[in-house]
Design a protein around this nucleic acid. Sequence first.
DNA 1: ACGCGAACCAAAAACGTTTACGGAGGTGTC
DNA 2: GACACCTCCGTAAACGTTTTTGGTTCGCGT
Lengths: 341, 341
Amino acid sequence: MKGIRRLAQELNISIGTVSRALNGRADVSDETRQRVLEAATTMGYVPNQAGRSLRQGSTNAIGFMIELGADINGNSDTFFMGVFDGVQSVLTRHHLDLVALPCPTDENPTAYLQRMIGRRLVDGLIISATHRKDPRIDLLTKARIPFIALGRSQTPGDYPWIDLDFDGVARRGIDRLVSAGHSRIAAAVPSNDINLGFVFLDGYKAALKRHGLPYDPSLVMRVPSSELGGYQLGHDILTMENRPTAIILNYELLALGLYRQLAEAGLQAGRDLAIIGFRENPVSRFMSPRLTCFRLSLRDLGIALGEALLASMPAYADAYPLGTVQRVWPMELVPGESDGL
Amino acid sequence: MKGIRRLAQELNISIGTVSRALNGRADVSDETRQRVLEAATTMGYVPNQAGRSLRQGSTNAIGFMIELGADINGNSDTFFMGVFDGVQSVLTRHHLDLVALPCPTDENPTAYLQRMIGRRLVDGLIISATHRKDPRIDLLTKARIPFIALGRSQTPGDYPWIDLDFDGVARRGIDRLVSAGHSRIAAAVPSNDINLGFVFLDGYKAALKRHGLPYDPSLVMRVPSSELGGYQLGHDILTMENRPTAIILNYELLALGLYRQLAEAGLQAGRDLAIIGFRENPVSRFMSPRLTCFRLSLRDLGIALGEALLASMPAYADAYPLGTVQRVWPMELVPGESDGL
DNA sequence: ACGCGAACCAAAAACGTTTACGGAGGTGTC
DNA sequence: GACACCTCCGTAAACGTTTTTGGTTCGCGT
């Protein structure tokens, strides 16, 4: 005898009553509920998830898909750890659990997602590293799985997303550099078709225009989103015939490789090249000279993601009347010395 | 009509046959199997996991528990992502999926694990960041859940584990520094009771002894495993009255904060303080001067973990006749300039 | 023509839970 | 005292799959 049956037998009541007591339904006397709860903890009973899922058609779990591989996600994994924490904190309020779904490097992300959806092991999904056209969005929409994208996409449709303020970061970066007298300002964007690159580039172009500066395509440097990409970026800049005097980065770890490349050439950030980095992170805080970059609270971002996802799930929507969240997440400038200001 | 029923109806065969065809059992004609497989893909049928789990009492998923929070896990950044990839590659061969279970910062890891075990949403578990006495090991043993620990523990019992070679790293670090003439060599160890600190310290003591050097407890520096901890470490060293001339680190990102602290004091790694770092990682590769540290293949480690876990699961043990794996994972020295050699 | 095994498949039970339904007993109302 | 109406609980069906059991068909040898 296992599971709920054992508990019921022990207490000499029916399994139905045990279930109702455990799930907080009204039609159970307080005394019985007490006894059940007590016995459940002493006997270490935890409802079997497979049974629950099968019966209620939901799994009480939310998936967070992450893509493995250094330079594809555009985020380092301290990033995800912080976000997970925020998401968890809102999910646990509703007895939902978070599981991270790491898509292996050698598998197609869309195929992987399809498998996960098919298995039906989560009720809702958070996807990240959205591409310009992201087939996962169509897939999720068609399968009617509640989801939210961490990152915009140009895939049409009315789905929820939250994205970092790449546009604003580019704009404020340019503003800052222009006001310091720079006019040849480069921008680093990812070499793949992840959507954030396009948003960043649009912000870059718009800001230049507003300042009456010409847009020079040769100043758009495409490199992989990794430390090595930053190193390569440095090389590309140093070998240009008409070097920019400043650069804005769109990925948090580019600065590291760039610093190194500059150091090897006897140059220094802030003095020989003005650099504005992207996200403040544990590494950036300890670089010398200190990196000018942008700060955000990963936990708050996670909380917002969790709430927006719940808002899109019928069973929880009333607790979070947010509609379809489409939100740009603000980032706060943290001045350093790398921009020479 | 949903699921396997729909498929069966479409093909005019029974659901049992569909199931058998899909699961590769022998008593299905090749022709029928073909038709089933074909229809399954065109209709996009994927077996409902809840149904399978309930019936077969297993979930076809493996959990990898990670603790959130920067300085508790003793590993960070790209570490887990790399390991995940290796684990996945083993698991997919057996149609198992990997889910990462992030334990929130505000929840007790053991309680979290218990919840996950109770829900029965994975067949096996990988735990990491093992503490000196780790109650999770007792829990898993008692619950008879196949598991493997990434990291040794002093919890008694005959359970599988794979751990990085903290002992060897300490030993070889000391050897190298002693042969370069150093005799006051400090060691950085974590300030919490994560077990790797004890292993590292033991290796440190043993190596000193072998070289006939005295063990000076004041040279054991306890700091949090984070970049900030490295910064604090630097401060602690610089304010000592009888400074060490060299230090070996036991966490990969300590060097970053330490470098910074030295730089602020006008000092430099390799010249003013010999530093041997821990794990080579994308960040360490771009620090100046280049950090002397130790290399390992995360993917191979992940593969070993996956195989050792499968070896402990009855259903897969014949494919991996490894017994109870208890293995120290070797790390290869990568010379840099930070040790002044 | 008959028996017999092999190949294939249909039917039904089982996994552990939730929940719709109904019934027993008690309480209150006229 | 009949009736309605609660409160509490037992019964049983249902979720989607796998697997056991048993049965039908066919081919083949005698």
